[in-house]
């Protein structure tokens, strides 16, 4: 922590604006989690920028007492890129949703991840378009009935973390809006230098209520949530079960917790990360930091190259405009 940074509390991070999400929306829980996490990060409000696109979640920056930029649909990663390149000292957070990041903004999400811009990307996935009143989204499951798909959607959904992995993300994590472990996920995302991709399962009470209930309900949570911890065994169901590699079929299998083949979580293992992201039916949902393997960040590479290319050269404007093959005209002009 920078010792010059003022100590803050969660309250210091709340803006004076009235929060206007539907009562019971998962966004409230995420907002609280972020506001609670910020003081622990040792960052200054003035050096923090929340950038968002369009959608319910994208109202988020207005409620944070930092700098904030509510931009246009799907493009938040591009704004974040300009902000971070212009001032690498800023701590940049991108707030987005499943439609914003994976439909209209899929291209930008891919490129900000492959470039590895140092920022935290929080994707609020509620598998629905909320702000436009309930149409199905690119993460909606096949058969989702919505105003635009009254007979059920027919197209297959994208898996956000697989998309991130395929795009070259070096940090991929999952959390749940109301889960107490969300601040830890956020802290890990912030600690990672580079683009940190965090998918947050967020419940839309109005248009897609309980869509994640099969693993978020208190009654099934233990059985259906696998919280990954680096260097620790992959255990769930009250540490009674674990995951091991089925080396014949090259996939993961569920074994008893005391089975010596239970895998220890190595976040750098990209192959296992892929399997964890797409655990099949009957398995728990992998949560926490699934994949982390740091690489040089985009802005640091740009800054370094700019400095190297400029070194030894003087910013002499007169010399610049006088470059190339020149000739001198000495005589006085005469009338044409």
């Amino acid at each position: 922590m920078n010792e010059m940074t003022k100590v803050t509390t969660a309250k210091d991070w709340a803006s004076d604006q009235e929060v206007r999400w539907c009562p019971g929306c998962g966004d409230y829980a995420v907002l609280k989690a972020v506001q609670r996490t910020m003081p622990d990060l040792g960052v200054a409000r003035e050096k923090t920028v929340f950038v968002s696109g369009i959608g319910c979640s994208s109202r988020f920056p207005y409620y944070m007492a930092s700098y904030g930029f509510h931009t246009i649909h799907g493009r938040a990663p591009a704004f974040a890129t300009g902000i971070k390149l212009a001032n690498p000292e800023l701590d940049v957070w991108v707030i987005t949703g499943d439609g914003d990041a994976l439909s209209i903004g899929g291209n930008h999400t891919m490129h900000v991840l492959r470039r590895n811009l140092d920022c935290q990307i929080l994707l609020f996935n509620n598998e629905i378009y909320g702000l436009t009143k309930g149409q199905y989204s690119p993460t909606s499951r096949v058969g989702t009935r919505s105003p635009s798909t009254p007979f059920g959607s027919v197209d297959r959904p994208v898996t956000p973390c697989m998309f991130a992995l395929g795009s070259g993300a070096r940090f991929i994590a999952r959390g749940i809006d109301v889960h107490k472990a969300l601040p830890d996920v956020l802290k890990a995302a912030h600690a990672h230098k580079g683009a940190s991709f965090v998918e947050i399962y967020q419940n839309c009470v109005v248009y897609n209520d309980d869509v994640f209930a099969s693993f978020t309900e208190r009654s099934v949570a233990q059985e259906k949530q696998l919280w990954l911890k680096p260097g620790e065994k992959m255990l769930f169901a009250g540490d009674t079960k674990g995951l091991a590699l089925d080396s014949e079929r090259l996939c993961l299998k569920i074994v008893e917790a005391d089975d010596p083949s239970v895998i220890v979580h190595d976040p750098k293992n990209r192959g296992v990360a892929a399997m964890l992201i797409e655990l099949p039916q009957g398995f728990p949902v992998a949560l926490g930091v699934i994949y982390e393997d740091p690489a040089p960040t985009f802005e640091s590479a740009v800054v370094e190259q700019n400095a190297a290319a400029a070194s030894g050269k003087k910013a002499d404007l007169q010399a610049l405009v006088s470059k190339g093959q020149t000739w001198q005209v000495d005589k006085e002009p005469h009338a044409i």
């Binding site: 920028v49 950038v51 930029f69 931009t71 246009i72 493009r75 990663p77 591009a78 704004f79 974040a80 890129t81 300009g82 902000i83 971070k84 390149l85 212009a86 001032n87 800023l90 291209n107 930008h108 891919m110 490129h111 740009v302 190259q305 700019n306 400095a307 290319a309 400029a310 050269k313 003087k314 910013a315 404007l317 610049l320």
Partner: peptide
């Protein structure tokens, strides 16, 4: 580069202007 210029070849025209607006904001 010696004139304090950062050039960014973006993924598309939209990202090109959005990044420029982001830089102006910053």
């Amino acid at each position: 580069k010696e004139f304090g210029i950062t050039t960014f070849q973006a993924e598309d025209e939209i990202a090109a202007i959005c990044s420029a607006i982001g830089a102006s904001y910053a």
